[in-house]
Design a protein around this nucleic acid. Structure first.
Length: 517
RNA sequence: GGCCCGGUCGUCUAGCGGUCUAGGACGCCGCCCUUUCACGGCGGAGAUCGCGGGUUCGAGUCCCGUCCGGGCUACCA
C-alpha cells in the first residue's frame, strides 16, 4: 500500500506551532516512505472561516520547508482540495444518498432548543451527554416524511450500532476501545447542508486514498465515530496516528501566555526554519539514539512512528534558542549576511517588530521593538553595499547571538556613526582618573601609526600600559571597549578594532573623552 | 458526572524483564580558556522511574488498583 498522508487544517486563523508539528510528522513520514503529502483545507464551518488564513498556512508551511505534492495551491488528481468546493462539486452527495438509503444515517429534526434541553436533563441525571436516539433515530418513514413536508430543518446523524465494542488500533497508543452504547450519534450533515468534519474528513480521506491519518490526540474521542462510519460504508480504515499535543508551562495546550504560538512569529523573531523543524520534531519524537541536532534530511531518514511519544510534551524555548544559536554558529558569515538581508526585508519581520510589545511573561529577551527594527535596518543597509565590512561584523558577533533579530543590537556599533552608549558602561569605566587622558593619547597614537592589524592595535595599548605603569591591561582595555562600542561586552577588542578601522577607532576614542567625569 | 488518553532528572528524552548503582541533551552551578561577553573544553548537582499492591530468582520495563494531569462530552474543527 502506498503511503498517502494529509494535513487538513481549518482556515480559521494562523498556523499554530502545535498544528505545525502534525504537519511536520506528515511530511517526514511521507518523505521517508516515498509517499505523497497532501494539503486539504477543511472549510466547512462558514461561521469561523477566515479568508486570509489559507495563504498564511501555505506561507508558514513553505517557510518551514514542508512541501506538498497535492493541494489547493498545486492541484492534483483528487482536486478540488477545499471541502467547500468539494461540496459544490457534489462530491459528498452520492455518499450522503447511500448513507440515507442504507440506513447508515438518519434525518433528525430536533431544534437547537430541544437539544439544549436534552443535554441539560442528561447532566442533571448524571448521564452521558449526547444524542443517543432522541425521537428520530428510529422514527417511522411516515413521521420523517411528514416533518420533511412541513419544511422543518434537519441534520443527518450517523446511526451508531449499539451493543458492541468499537475498537481502533492506534499507531502510537495501540488498541483503544469503547462501548458503542456510550458513543452518541454524530451529526454528519448540518442543517445548512454542509458536511461536518465527521463526514467530510472521513469521505475525503477515503476518496483521496489516505493511508495514515496523523492528527492531534484531541481527536481520539471521536475516533470511534469515524471508524463506525467507515465500517458501515464498507471502506478500508486508514491507520490512525494520534499525536500528543504540545503543552505550555501549565500543562495545558500551548497558549499565548507560553510565548508565541503563531509559526510566522518565530520567523519574525529570527528563528531559522531548520532548527525550528528540528526542535518541533524532538518534542514527542526521538530518533532513538542520542542525536539532538538533525538536518532536515536526517530527520526524514530517521523518522519512524515507533519513535513517537504518547505523552504530551512541553514547549521549552531554551532548547529552541540553543538549537537556533548553534545553527547560526555553523553558518558562514557570507551566508548569514544573505539570510539576514532577506530576513530583515521580509514584511513579516517588519510588521512584527513595528507592533512589538515586550511581555515579561513570554520568555523573550527584553528588547525594544523600535530599537530592534532600527538596528536591523541599519544592518540590512550595510549588507547590501558593504559586503566585506558586514561579513566581518557578522563574523565577530555570530557566536553570541541566538536569533537573527539579535544581530541588530549586537552589530549596531559597527554601523552607527557613533555607538549608542550604555549608561552603566560609562558609569563603570569613565570615572577613573586616567581614562580621559588615555583616550586622547591612544587616539593620537592609533592615528599617527595608522594601525590596521589587530597586533598593531594591541601593541599601542600595551605600550601605553607599560609606559604609564599599569600592572594589568584591564584599566586600558575596558574603557577603550566602552569608547568604541558603548558597552562592556562583545567580540575581542583587537579584532573589533581591525574591523572598525583606524579612522573610526581614532575618532571614537577622541569623542568619548567628553563622557569622562 | 461519563468516556478516553497520559505519568522516567526543572524540561525534551533513551530504556522495550537482568548490561540501570537509570544514559544523552537543554537549562543550572563550578573550573579551564580569556582584555569583557560569548563560543569551546572539562566537571558537578539533579529522577528510588506518580503512588500502592502483585507476577517473577529478578521490574522503570508485565498485571491490578489508586492518585494526579490532560482531552472529548457542539449543527467547531
Amino acid at each position: 500500500m502506498s503511503v498517502r498522508v494529509r494535513f487538513a487544517p481549518s482556515p480559521t486563523g494562523y498556523l499554530h506551532v502545535g498544528a505545525l508539528r502534525t504537519a511536520l510528522f506528515d511530511e517526514l513520514f511521507a518523505r521517508k516512505n516515498n509517499g505523497k503529502n497532501i494539503l486539504r483545507i477543511e472549510d466547512t464551518d462558514r461561521a469561523r472561516y477566515n479568508a486570509e488564513s489559507e495563504q498564511e498556512f501555505i506561507e508558514s508551511l513553505k517557510w518551514v520547508g514542508i512541501d506538498f505534492d497535492e493541494g489547493p495551491h498545486l492541484g492534483g488528481p483528487f482536486a478540488p482540495y477545499r471541502q467547500s468546493e468539494r461540496k459544490e462539486f457534489g462530491i459528498y452527495a452520492p455518499i450522503l444518498k447511500r448513507v440515507l438509503e442504507e440506513g447508515i444515517g438518519y434525518k433528525a429534526f430536533d431544534t437547537p432548543e430541544e437539544l439544549d434541553e436534552m443535554r441539560l436533563t442528561q447532566q442533571i441525571n448524571k448521564q452521558p451527554t449526547g444524542y443517543f436516539g432522541g425521537e428520530w433515530r428510529d422514527a417511522s418513514p411516515e413521521k420523517v416524511a411528514e416533518a420533511e413536508s412541513e419544511g422543518r430543518p434537519y441534520v443527518v446523524r450517523l446511526k451508531v450500532q449499539r451493543g458492541k465494542r468499537i475498537v481502533i488500533d492506534d499507531a502510537i497508543r495501540g488498541r483503544i476501545e469503547w462501548d458503542s452504547n456510550l458513543v452518541d450519534d454524530p451529526v454528519l450533515i448540518k442543517a445548512d447542508g454542509m458536511p461536518t468534519y465527521h463526514f467530510a474528513a472521513i469521505v475525503d480521506d477515503h476518496l483521496m486514498q489516505i493511508s495514515h491519518v496523523f492528527r492531534g490526540e484531541e481527536w481520539v474521542s471521536s475516533a470511534p465515530k469515524h471508524v463506525e462510519l467507515i465500517d458501515q460504508l464498507g471502506w478500508e480504515r486508514p491507520m490512525f496516528v494520534h499525536c500528543p499535543v504540545i503543552v505550555g508551562k501549565t500543562g495545558k495546550k500551548l497558549s499565548k501566555r507560553d510565548g508565541a504560538t503563531r509559526v510566522l512569529d518565530y520567523m519574525a523573531k529570527g528563528y531559522l526554519a531548520n532548527p525550528l523543524k528540528n526542535f518541533i520534531a524532538l518534542i514527542g519524537w526521538s530518533p532513538g539514539d542520542n542525536r539532538e541536532e538533525l538536518s532536515p534530511q536526517e530527520l526524514i531518514d530517521s523518522f519512524d512512528i515507533k519513535g513517537l511519544q504518547a505523552s504530551p510534551g512541553k514547549f521549552d524555548i531554551d532548547k529552541l534558542n540553543w538549537l537556533n544559536g548553534s545553527a547560526i554558529r555553523q553558518m558562514s558569515a557570507t551566508d548569514l549576511r544573505k539570510v539576514l538581508l532577506e530576513y530583515v526585508e521580509s514584511p513579516v519581520t517588519q510588521g512584527y517588530w513595528q507592533t512589538y510589545e515586550y511581555d515579561p511573561e513570554s520568555g523573550d529577551p527584553a528588547v525594544d521593538g523600535d530599537r530592534t527594527l532600527e538596528t536591523l535596518n541599519l544592518l540590512a543597509e550595510a549588507a547590501k553595499s558593504r559586503h566585506d565590512y558586514c561579513d566581518a561584523a557578522i563574523g565577530l558577533e555570530q557566536e553570541r547571538v541566538q536569533r537573527l533579530a539579535d544581530f541588530g543590537e549586537a552589530c549596531s556599533f559597527f554601523f552607527e556613526d557613533t555607538p549608542t552608549m550604555h549608561p552603566d558602561a560609562v558609569k563603570k569605566w569613565f570615572g577613573q582618573p586616567h581614562v580621559k587622558n588615555m583616550l586622547h593619547e591612544l587616539s593620537q597614537e592609533v592615528a599617527s601609526r595608522s594601525c590596521s592589524k589587530p597586533e598593531e592595535f594591541e601593541a599601542v595599548l600595551r605600550n601605553w600600559q607599560t609606559s604609564n605603569g599599569f600592572e594589568k591591561l584591564g584599566p586600558i582595555v575596558h574603557p577603550v571597549r566602552v569608547a568604541l562600542t558603548g558597552r562592556t561586552f562583545g567580540p575581542g577588542l583587537w579584532e573589533l578594532m581591525e574591523v572598525l578601522g583606524n579612522e573610526k577607532v581614532a575618532k571614537r576614542l577622541e569623542l568619548a573623552r567628553s563622557l569622562c567625569f
